[in-house]
């Protein structure tokens, strides 16, 4: 079974401050789809350096959502992209899908 996202880090950060927790969730709901879109566009345009930059930014969201194994995958994929190596693309985009689904369901 694939690693699943969670809100442990966000809960830990907020320390029970519900307003702050809601703020972070609202940011991740807004920012994640934008970052995923930007990453996909760069890849479609074959701008590999840009795509790597977007993966770099996505790494923070991956870690915030507690996906420790996927974080390492993102590190490797970011480096691969700089060499135009797409062998980890499918696996990485599956992680993005899982994150998107999780974030969409957050309230």
């Amino acid at each position: 079974m694939k690693e699943q996202p969670n809100l442990s880090y966000i809960n830990q950060l907020s320390g029970g401050d519900l307003a702050f927790e809601a703020k972070l969730i609202s940011i991740v709901k807004r920012e994640l789809p934008q970052e995923v879109e930007a990453y996909k566009k760069s890849l479609n345009d074959k701008k590999f350096q840009n795509a790597a930059d977007h993966v770099h930014k996505l790494k923070h969201k991956i870690s915030i959502l507690g996906l420790e194994l996927s974080y390492q995958l993102a590190i490797d994929y970011e480096e691969d992209l700089l060499n135009e190596d797409l062998s980890k693309q499918k696996e990485f985009e599956e992680v993005l899908q899982i994150m998107m689904r999780f974030v969409e369901e957050l309230k």
Partner: peptide
């Protein structure tokens, strides 16, 4: 920081 999430966390 260009990322809003990062700014929000450091702000807090």
């Amino acid at each position: 920081d260009d990322e809003e999430m990062a700014r929000a966390i450091i702000e807090q």
